[in-house]
């Protein structure tokens, strides 16, 4: 066992024994209260601390390790994400079709409001809380550095969103296989769907965390994330509809760059065989798709850099 002395538990007790302090820890002739035990087991250092923060944040995104109340919303959203997938699978199996009613890549796009709500509620939970209750300086008094904190929080948020979006896609896939749909087709579609939701997770978490990290007030964070996601989507889809109306279809694919969800949708239709959700299905082709990819990469990297910059300032 890792503890030096295991005898005695009295915490009020008199200094009843004289013991040697661990080497190098304190002078050798310190009189210890018998109730205090020194720890000389392993100290796992920075990488372990980063992993601990990651797992705590990931669990926290679903309310695990927090109050019962804080489990309600994330679990409810996860259920809402999965329920339509279950219904679709049931319908597909019952009607004996040869393909699922919804593409794998399309599923997350259809349920984007749920994903948006999840990010809006959990990103502030993850970072605004630490700012508001000033726990951040405490973290930086530990072996981790700014980059470790940001990386752990980013990875945890992205993993949480990925779980939310990947589970229903996996349900669709399992259901499709149970319904004896074509294995090769379904596996290809499933893989494309996974890539699409992985990119979506990175993008949404990045945007959500940057906005949430700006304010210690959780309410503001929630409102701001919802606003950014819905307003950008609303504006882009309205302009796309107008462009479609006026038959200037060439601009539709470029407009799609300006909201997170149409960006993901565009990458899906350019590279992942998805049917575009843009009006008239004027999604980007492969060459415009490169621009989409670049914008996505810039947004993800940019939000990481912004987070690092933010936490440089709020450290201890």
């Amino acid at each position: 066992m890792s503890f030096k002395t295991r005898t005695g538990t009295s915490h009020t007790g008199q200094p009843a024994s004289v013991q040697q302090a661990p080497p190098g820890a304190a002078p050798a002739d310190v009189i210890h209260n018998i109730g205090y035990r020194h720890y000389d087991g392993p100290r796992l250092g920075r990488a372990y601390a980063r992993r601990s923060l990651f797992s705590q944040s990931l669990r926290g995104a679903y309310g695990l390790g927090r109050s019962a109340k804080s489990k309600v919303l994330p679990m409810l959203l996860l259920a809402v994400m999965c329920l339509p997938a279950g219904i679709l699978v049931a319908v597909a199996v019952a009607t004996d079709t040869d393909e699922l009613p919804v593409e794998y890549t399309r599923y997350a796009i259809i349920l984007q409001a749920v994903i948006g709500l999840f990010v809006a509620s959990q990103a502030p939970q993850s970072v605004s809380r630490d700012l508001r209750f000033k726990t951040v300086p405490l973290y930086f008094s530990r072996p981790i550095e700014t980059a470790d904190y940001v990386a752990a929080k980013f990875a945890a948020m992205a993993s949480a969103v990925f779980m939310l979006t990947a589970v229903p896609v996996a349900i669709l896939y399992v259901g499709a296989l149970l319904g004896k749909l074509d294995f090769v087709d379904q596996t290809k579609g499933f893989a494309q769907g996974m890539v699409s939701v992985a990119l979506l997770s990175l993008l949404f978490s990045g945007i959500g965390l940057v906005i949430a990290a700006l304010t210690p007030r959780r309410g503001f964070g929630v409102a701001a994330v919802i606003a950014v996601l819905t307003i950008s989507y609303g504006a882009v889809s309205t302009m796309q509809a107008i462009a479609d109306e006026q038959a200037s279809t060439g601009s539709i694919e470029w407009l799609g760059l300006f909201s997170p969800i149409t960006l993901i949708d565009g990458i899906g239709s350019a590279f992942l065989g998805a049917t575009s959700a843009a009006p008239g299905q004027y999604g980007p082709d492969a060459s415009t798709g490169i621009v989409y990819l670049l914008v996505l990469a810039a947004l993800v990297a940019g939000s990481y850099a912004l987070l690092i910059r933010r936490y440089r300032k709020v450290g201890l």
């Binding site: 890792s2 720890y39 087991g41 392993p42 100290r43 796992l44 250092g45 920075r46 372990y48 601390a49 601990s52 923060l53 705590q56 405490l138 973290y139 530990r142 072996p143 981790i144």
Partner: peptide, 13 residues
């Protein structure tokens, strides 16, 4: 417990 792990202590310790 969380802060102990942030300092590098294994979960049980």
């Amino acid at each position: 417990v969380h802060m102990a792990r942030m300092s590098g202590l294994p979960p049980s310790a």
